[in-house]
Design a protein around this nucleic acid. Sequence first.
DNA 1: CCAGGACGCGCG
DNA 2: AAAGCGCGCGTCCTGG
Length: 472
Amino acid sequence: MKIQPTTYDGYKLLHEGVLALADIEENGMCIDIEYCKKQQNHLARRIKHLEKKLLKDKTVKKWKKKYGSQFNFDSDTQMAKMFNVDSAKQEVMEQIGDPIIDTLILRKRLSKARNTYVANYIREAVDGMLHPFFHLHTTRSIRSSCSNINFQNQPVRIELIKKIVRRAVIPRPGNIIGEIDYSGQEVKVATCNHKDPEMIKELNDPSRDMHRDMAMMCYKVPKDLMTSKIRYCGKNKFVFPQFYGDYYVHNATDLWNAITTLNLELKNGIPLHKHLKSNKLGTYSKFESHIKKVEKYFWEDKFSVYADWKQQIWDDYCDTGQVFLYSGFVCSGYMERNKVINMPIQGPAFHCLLWSLIKINKWLKETGKQTKVIGQIHDSIVLDIYPPELNEVIEKCRKIMTEDIVTHWPWLIVQLKIDVELTPVDGSWYLKEEVKRADCHECGSSWMWQKEDGDEEYWECPVCENIETVPF
DNA sequence: CCAGGACGCGCG
DNA sequence: AAAGCGCGCGTCCTGG
């Protein structure tokens, strides 16, 4: 497969992109090495402790006896064999229902945190600074990649592991780490391609919520009994997989397994399994044929224009052997259907970030700011922010990322939006939380955390820790 | 003994 | 007709 620029604009994006990413590499980020070393020892002890506990288990005892000196907790082959499964994947292991599995999974997670993440901070940091490489020449998608360390896959989904790992990344003394991300950028860039009026309505009407609606449909849950967990499953086990070309059998399996592994229940406390049973979806095979119907509705009724576009882009590729990208590129060579459909979306979505990154970095340099870009994660920019520059920097980023870019690329026909997350002054990356527009009367910062204490809502300033009960 | 493949898992 | 896209890294394991 080959991919190349079709326009000078495309070429220039990569050229200037490489230079901007080189600046970011040079800037680097601060690492709390002392913390990393302590944490590494702590994790070693914790893992050893878990292994001691595991060795008291019946199955693990058998496992050790069978393999003797070859016995190894890290061997997936051994583990799968002992538990009579084809694969040692977590989702497979979880289905066994043996209580020892939780401990085995925890051991695996802690081991990964130690051996992959914390160890690499220590290995790659020089004098407390880390300089990950950001590449633009490695991927099939024309996204970026990142190595030594891979800053783009630092844990965030599991609270315990997130804390262990992200605690190591800290701002320069007196500064704040800020992350500005495009919200829903891939869905929006897809929409710029297919222009499905139903999706445009979804995106323009803030009262609508397709992830919630699809979750409701998949599990037959009425609106007033919905929970955020059920919505999460609709979004991540049906909607997104469908956009990437997944199909109902896989979706149904995932959605079905999630009911037990995530302990799903309705808002009124009724277990989801019970709820499905009373709606005649009590067995997997009934549930699967239900999801088949949901898939049919999704593509034939709800997003039929999107479906037509997918067919069109595939037909065009079959005729010409080419796929064109709005950001100024063409792909040719052998590709499977799902890859073809994805190509015009994934790359250009990243290119919006890259274009913005180039402008933001240039502005920071030209105006002599102390704030620096220190990283990039596909649809977000990570900054080390000098607090007196906070308001100005965020405003400039907002303007570039949501206004200037639309002027540059008129194919961006839907409204773009950013979200902002900040750490406290001197606070680690783990502590970053979303901020909203709200003025702090103490220090003049325009961005505050919206917090709750029981029924009481209040606002806290990341810069000066001031608390406001009535902002603005 | 080493290189490279397979697998698993972290992220968007 | 095929059956989720894109990455990097650590570990195990196989074949030469």
